[in-house]
Design a protein around this nucleic acid. Structure first.
Lengths: 72, 72
DNA sequence: ACATTTTGCAATATATATTTTACATTTGTA
DNA sequence: TACAAATGTAAAATATATATTGCAAAATGT
Protein backbone atom coordinates (compact mmCIF):
# COMPACT_ATOMS: atom_id res chain seq x y z
CA UNK A 1 0.00 0.00 0.00
CA UNK A 2 2.60 2.47 1.07
CA UNK A 3 4.92 1.96 -1.82
CA UNK A 4 2.12 2.08 -4.35
CA UNK A 5 1.40 5.67 -3.50
CA UNK A 6 5.04 6.62 -3.69
CA UNK A 7 5.51 4.76 -6.96
CA UNK A 8 2.49 6.45 -8.51
CA UNK A 9 3.72 9.84 -7.35
CA UNK A 10 7.26 9.35 -8.63
CA UNK A 11 5.90 7.94 -11.90
CA UNK A 12 4.28 11.30 -12.46
CA UNK A 13 7.54 12.99 -11.55
CA UNK A 14 6.07 14.77 -8.56
CA UNK A 15 7.78 15.53 -5.27
CA UNK A 16 5.85 15.10 -2.08
CA UNK A 17 5.54 18.88 -1.86
CA UNK A 18 4.06 19.13 -5.35
CA UNK A 19 1.53 16.39 -4.68
CA UNK A 20 0.69 18.02 -1.35
CA UNK A 21 0.11 21.35 -3.07
CA UNK A 22 -2.16 19.77 -5.67
CA UNK A 23 -4.12 17.83 -3.07
CA UNK A 24 -4.28 20.67 -0.57
CA UNK A 25 -2.45 19.16 2.38
CA UNK A 26 0.99 19.55 3.91
CA UNK A 27 4.03 17.80 2.56
CA UNK A 28 4.39 16.01 5.88
CA UNK A 29 0.94 14.52 5.48
CA UNK A 30 1.89 12.97 2.16
CA UNK A 31 5.11 11.67 3.66
CA UNK A 32 3.33 10.10 6.60
CA UNK A 33 0.63 8.55 4.42
CA UNK A 34 3.30 7.02 2.19
CA UNK A 35 4.98 5.56 5.24
CA UNK A 36 1.69 4.25 6.55
CA UNK A 37 1.80 6.29 9.74
CA UNK A 38 -1.36 8.26 8.97
CA UNK A 39 -4.77 6.71 8.44
CA UNK A 40 -6.12 9.15 5.86
CA UNK A 41 -9.74 10.09 5.43
CA UNK A 42 -11.63 8.88 2.41
CA UNK A 43 -11.88 12.37 0.96
CA UNK A 44 -8.15 12.80 1.11
CA UNK A 45 -7.63 9.39 -0.49
CA UNK A 46 -9.99 10.33 -3.32
CA UNK A 47 -8.19 13.61 -3.93
CA UNK A 48 -4.87 11.82 -4.12
CA UNK A 49 -6.38 9.38 -6.62
CA UNK A 50 -7.61 12.20 -8.86
CA UNK A 51 -4.19 13.86 -8.99
CA UNK A 52 -2.37 10.60 -9.66
CA UNK A 53 -5.04 9.20 -12.00
CA UNK A 54 -5.46 6.02 -10.01
CA UNK A 55 -8.34 4.24 -8.32
CA UNK A 56 -8.76 3.77 -4.59
CA UNK A 57 -7.94 0.09 -4.99
CA UNK A 58 -4.83 0.87 -7.02
CA UNK A 59 -3.39 2.97 -4.24
CA UNK A 60 -4.99 1.92 -1.00
CA UNK A 61 -6.36 -1.64 -1.10
CA UNK A 62 -4.98 -3.93 1.56
CA UNK A 63 -5.84 -7.61 1.65
CA UNK A 64 -7.59 -8.58 4.83
CA UNK A 65 -4.82 -10.90 6.00
CA UNK A 66 -2.27 -8.12 5.58
CA UNK A 67 -4.59 -5.69 7.34
CA UNK A 68 -4.93 -8.06 10.29
CA UNK A 69 -1.19 -8.60 10.39
CA UNK A 70 -0.58 -4.86 10.46
CA UNK A 71 -2.96 -4.48 13.35
CA UNK A 72 -0.68 -6.54 15.58
CA UNK B 1 -21.46 6.43 -3.06
CA UNK B 2 -23.83 6.55 -0.17
CA UNK B 3 -26.44 4.30 -1.62
CA UNK B 4 -23.86 1.77 -2.73
CA UNK B 5 -22.92 1.08 0.85
CA UNK B 6 -26.52 0.73 1.92
CA UNK B 7 -27.33 -1.49 -1.03
CA UNK B 8 -24.37 -3.75 -0.31
CA UNK B 9 -25.35 -3.97 3.34
CA UNK B 10 -29.00 -4.73 2.64
CA UNK B 11 -27.98 -7.24 -0.03
CA UNK B 12 -26.28 -9.18 2.72
CA UNK B 13 -29.38 -8.79 4.86
CA UNK B 14 -27.60 -6.86 7.56
CA UNK B 15 -28.98 -4.04 9.66
CA UNK B 16 -26.79 -1.08 10.38
CA UNK B 17 -26.31 -2.44 13.89
CA UNK B 18 -25.11 -5.80 12.64
CA UNK B 19 -22.65 -4.26 10.20
CA UNK B 20 -21.44 -1.92 12.94
CA UNK B 21 -20.86 -4.87 15.25
CA UNK B 22 -18.88 -6.74 12.61
CA UNK B 23 -16.81 -3.70 11.71
CA UNK B 24 -16.30 -2.58 15.31
CA UNK B 25 -17.94 0.85 15.24
CA UNK B 26 -21.23 2.27 16.46
CA UNK B 27 -24.47 1.91 14.57
CA UNK B 28 -24.60 5.68 14.26
CA UNK B 29 -21.26 5.73 12.48
CA UNK B 30 -22.56 3.36 9.81
CA UNK B 31 -25.70 5.45 9.48
CA UNK B 32 -23.75 8.67 9.07
CA UNK B 33 -21.33 7.14 6.57
CA UNK B 34 -24.25 5.88 4.50
CA UNK B 35 -25.75 9.34 4.53
CA UNK B 36 -22.42 10.89 3.61
CA UNK B 37 -22.21 12.99 6.75
CA UNK B 38 -19.03 11.32 8.02
CA UNK B 39 -15.76 11.28 6.10
CA UNK B 40 -14.51 7.86 7.18
CA UNK B 41 -10.89 6.90 7.58
CA UNK B 42 -9.30 4.51 5.13
CA UNK B 43 -9.01 1.77 7.73
CA UNK B 44 -12.69 1.96 8.48
CA UNK B 45 -13.50 1.86 4.75
CA UNK B 46 -11.33 -1.22 4.32
CA UNK B 47 -13.01 -2.99 7.23
CA UNK B 48 -16.41 -2.28 5.77
CA UNK B 49 -15.22 -3.68 2.42
CA UNK B 50 -14.06 -6.90 4.03
CA UNK B 51 -17.40 -7.51 5.76
CA UNK B 52 -19.41 -6.72 2.65
CA UNK B 53 -17.02 -8.46 0.25
CA UNK B 54 -16.60 -5.39 -1.91
CA UNK B 55 -13.68 -3.28 -3.09
CA UNK B 56 -12.98 0.31 -2.08
CA UNK B 57 -14.00 1.45 -5.55
CA UNK B 58 -17.21 -0.57 -5.39
CA UNK B 59 -18.34 1.22 -2.27
CA UNK B 60 -16.55 4.53 -2.07
CA UNK B 61 -15.38 5.76 -5.46
CA UNK B 62 -16.69 9.21 -6.40
CA UNK B 63 -16.01 10.72 -9.80
CA UNK B 64 -14.06 13.92 -9.56
CA UNK B 65 -16.85 16.07 -11.00
CA UNK B 66 -19.28 14.71 -8.43
CA UNK B 67 -16.71 15.24 -5.69
CA UNK B 68 -16.28 18.87 -6.70
CA UNK B 69 -20.03 19.36 -6.87
CA UNK B 70 -20.42 17.94 -3.37
CA UNK B 71 -17.83 20.31 -2.06
CA UNK B 72 -20.03 23.30 -2.86
C1' DA C 1 -53.93 -1.22 14.53
C1' DC C 2 -50.44 -1.80 17.40
C1' DA C 3 -45.73 -3.54 18.61
C1' DT C 4 -41.21 -3.93 17.46
C1' DT C 5 -37.28 -2.93 14.90
C1' DT C 6 -34.57 0.06 12.31
C1' DT C 7 -32.91 4.36 11.08
C1' DG C 8 -32.47 9.46 11.62
C1' DC C 9 -31.13 13.39 14.28
C1' DA C 10 -28.85 16.23 17.70
C1' DA C 11 -25.78 17.72 21.20
C1' DT C 12 -21.83 16.77 23.84
C1' DA C 13 -17.64 14.13 24.81
C1' DT C 14 -13.73 11.60 23.30
C1' DA C 15 -10.46 9.90 20.06
C1' DT C 16 -7.76 10.52 16.27
C1' DA C 17 -6.32 12.83 11.86
C1' DT C 18 -3.72 16.66 10.30
C1' DT C 19 -1.12 21.00 10.70
C1' DT C 20 2.64 23.63 12.25
C1' DT C 21 7.30 24.29 13.16
C1' DA C 22 11.85 22.96 13.24
C1' DC C 23 15.58 20.17 12.73
C1' DA C 24 17.90 15.70 10.97
C1' DT C 25 18.94 12.64 7.41
C1' DT C 26 19.08 11.04 2.79
C1' DT C 27 19.30 11.63 -2.02
C1' DG C 28 20.46 14.04 -6.20
C1' DT C 29 23.49 16.79 -8.98
C1' DA C 30 27.11 19.59 -10.72
C1' DT D 1 32.95 16.53 -2.74
C1' DA D 2 29.91 20.33 -1.59
C1' DC D 3 25.73 21.97 -1.71
C1' DA D 4 20.72 21.90 -2.87
C1' DA D 5 16.68 19.51 -2.82
C1' DA D 6 13.83 16.01 -1.05
C1' DT D 7 12.34 13.28 2.60
C1' DG D 8 12.13 11.74 7.53
C1' DT D 9 11.02 12.68 12.33
C1' DA D 10 9.05 14.66 16.49
C1' DA D 11 6.32 17.33 19.62
C1' DA D 12 2.72 20.45 20.40
C1' DA D 13 -1.36 22.64 18.53
C1' DT D 14 -5.43 22.48 15.87
C1' DA D 15 -8.99 20.36 13.20
C1' DT D 16 -11.98 16.78 12.44
C1' DA D 17 -13.62 11.87 12.84
C1' DT D 18 -16.18 9.01 15.88
C1' DA D 19 -18.52 7.64 20.27
C1' DT D 20 -22.09 8.36 23.57
C1' DT D 21 -26.66 9.17 24.88
C1' DG D 22 -31.30 9.88 24.14
C1' DC D 23 -35.25 10.68 21.67
C1' DA D 24 -38.00 11.01 17.19
C1' DA D 25 -39.47 9.23 12.99
C1' DA D 26 -39.89 5.73 9.69
C1' DA D 27 -40.10 1.03 8.36
C1' DT D 28 -41.35 -3.54 9.17
C1' DG D 29 -43.62 -7.36 11.61
C1' DT D 30 -47.72 -9.55 13.56
Amino acid sequence: MRNRLKIARVSMDLTQQQLADKVGVTRQTISLIEKGTYNPTLKLCLQICYVLNKTLDDLFWVDEEDFEREKN
